[in-house]
Simulated assay, not measured.
Amino acid sequence: MSKKVVLITGTNSGFGWLTARSVAALGHKVYATIRDTEGKNSDKAKALAQVENVTVLDVSLTDETSVKKAIDTIIAKEGTIDVLVNNAGAAMFGVAESSTTGDVQRMFDVNVIAPWRLIKLVLPFMRKQAEGLIINVSSGWGRFSVPFSVVYGASKFALEGLSEGLHYELRPLGVDVVIIQPGAFPTEMSQKIQVGSDTSVVDDYKAIADVPNKMFTAIGQIFETTNPDPQDVAEAVINLINLPKGQRPLRTVVDPATGEFIKTANDAVKVEYAKALTAFGMEELLA
């Protein structure tokens, strides 16, 4: 297996932390982005930087200059970027109407615009070598919009929209764009869930106020029953890296509890999507 230059975002915890360490353990050169490495994330940054084959970069993904500087640094040292893993993300939970325009903007800045910013910057190098892999970490809720996670789901829908079209558009050029759809996992992200800023409307939803609690209870039961392991997401990334160019599936579901729901929906959409491309004269992109 050839060693690759891999850029992974959101590596201070959760999926990103595990993925960076797992990919580096295979001998790949990993560049791991963490925000505020001299401040609140300094301990995590120092710990990850001690891992063999890992270089930590202080990057604010919503800052164009910061991201461009990171890409320039990698290119100056390595000459290219073979794999991009857009893992960093933010979550929001609560009554959708409580989300202000600013709340929605911030969610899309992290979950959609930031991945696109990176995709746009790495593509010229991947196209030049006619080979590359972009892995966008979405969610099962990027397939179904779940009540009380509407804004989060909408941002993941958008990320999936970017990924799905690019998958077919870039594959003839040697670049694979794929999606990982994790289910619910016990990671630090669940402790950093944002809520809407407009709390004035929450009281008007008293009729369904107990529904979120039921959801959290159900998720807790899922964790007890299935004991989901976040390392499974890191292993899914490794599997996609190892697969031959052009043979990587568009979507990979990593969800031991409710993943079959997502897989069934994905399979149905894949069939109809192929019909749509054919109807619009683009069937050659399906090959």
Rank of each mutant, 00 (worst) to 15 (best):
L243N: 01
E97H: 09
P182Y: 04
N86F: 01
S13R: 15
T19G: 02
V104I: 15
G153H: 12
L173P: 05
G281I: 07
E97K: 07
A130N: 11
I193F: 11
R117Y: 05
L57S: 07
E38K: 14
Y31L: 02
S197C: 03
V51N: 03
G94I: 12
D255H: 06
P230D: 06
V137L: 10
M92H: 00
A276Y: 09
N227I: 00
L159S: 08
A207I: 07
A218W: 14
D210S: 12
Y205D: 13
T55F: 01
N41C: 06
A257V: 09
N86A: 04
K44H: 11
A88H: 02
Q105F: 12
G39Y: 01
E38I: 00
T278P: 14
N213Q: 12
Q129K: 11
D72Q: 06
R251E: 02
A158C: 12
E224A: 14
Y205S: 13
F280V: 10
T199E: 13
M215D: 10
T252R: 03
L173K: 00
S145T: 15
P256I: 05
P230L: 07
D82Q: 04
G246M: 01
G220Y: 10
T73E: 14
S99I: 11
G153M: 11
K263Y: 06
P115V: 01
A265W: 15
L26F: 03
V233W: 07
A24P: 00
H28W: 01
I193G: 06
N86T: 05
D103Q: 08
A287Q: 14
I179K: 07
A287M: 14
K29M: 08
D232T: 05
G174L: 02
T217L: 10
P124A: 02
